[in-house]
């Protein structure tokens, strides 16, 4: 940890990494709360894995066609939005088997990504950083884009807070009151997709669901008010990413994995604490 703090002042790549953690934590707390209370982490998982297709395609086009602006982050964003649209329009409906459609998106996206990366000359090591994240490689350009995505997510969730709450809690009421539930579902799914993209920068696409749900799950143990849950979740996410980065830095452990292990351990501790507390209140 002391080495981390010392180097943090010295090296800009570490400062970028911490800043990336902060930007990710904001959307993680807000959107993670919706994912947890709506029980849609499987949707987030499908989007996260399908994003590999976009990243691979972007890297392929960058290298072979010279389209330089099309960074993997852009590719991920486009793929995530497309996946969000498909999930909303094809996957929603009471009689449809949503999990089948999600599984298809999940695996087709990954397959495309692997094929694109295999076809790209040179960049084989990309695959590992897409899958497991590479927070230390975040560039100022990535940070700018993360900030823009954050801005969009915050704006949408503030403007439509009550609408999202209603479609999540009482979808039938929302329909009866004449709300365009498809539109709000789409908006919320796309917001989730963008958050997933932000978080893949930190922990990679395989471990995204953990970062999206665990800080909120801990927050849900502490409170039953949604705004408080969102705020706590942001704080927990920021603490976990920064601490994970700090712990992993000196011994050169993989940062993404360390962050998730820390999050998992914190969640288990919180759950045990909750269990003991509820036992005690039952006895007394």
């Amino acid at each position: 940890m002391p080495i981390f703090l010392h180097d943090l002042l010295q090296h800009s790549f570490l400062q970028y990494a911490v800043l990336a953690g902060l930007l990710a934590a904001i959307s993680c707390g807000i959107v993670g709360s919706y994912v947890v209370i709506r029980r849609t982490s499987y949707i987030a998982g499908a989007i996260a894995h399908c994003v590999l297709g976009g990243m691979g395609a972007a890297r392929y086009l960058q290298t072979t066609r010279g389209i330089n602006w099309l960074t993997p982050l852009w590719g991920a964003t486009i793929a995530a939005v497309i996946a969000g649209v498909i999930i909303t329009f094809v996957g929603n409906g009471e009689k449809k088997r949503q999990d089948t459609i999600l599984s298809a998106i999940w695996s087709i996206g990954m397959a495309l990504g692997i094929s694109f990366i295999a076809a790209t000359p040179g960049y084989q090591q990309d695959l590992m950083s897409f899958l497991f994240g590479n927070i230390l490689m975040v560039t100022p350009g990535d940070l700018e884009m993360m900030a823009v995505l954050d801005g969009f997510i915050i704006l949408v969730t503030i403007l439509f807070y009550n609408k999202f709450l209603t479609i999540s809690f009482q979808p039938q009421l929302a329909r009866l009151r004449g709300l365009n539930t498809t539109f709000y579902n789409l908006l919320l799914t796309i917001t989730t997709a963008l958050t997933v993209v932000l978080l893949t920068q930190i922990v990679g696409l395989i471990m995204v669901i953990a970062l999206l749900t665990l800080p909120t799950a801990i927050a849900a143990i502490c409170t039953r008010k949604l705004p408080v849950m969102m705020l706590l979740s942001c704080i927990f996410c920021l603490t976990l990413t920064t601490a994970g980065l700090g712990i992993s830095y000196a011994p050169e452990l993989p940062a993404g994995a360390t962050i998730i292990e820390l999050a998992g351990a914190s969640y288990i501790l919180a759950a045990i604490f909750k269990y003991i507390k509820s036992r005690r209140s039952k006895i007394s």
Partner: peptide, 17 residues
Amino acid sequence: DEAFPVTVNDVVLMGRI
């Protein structure tokens, strides 16, 4: 959903969403 974090006021206001 039992665990859904809404207050009584939130629920009543949803009638005017």
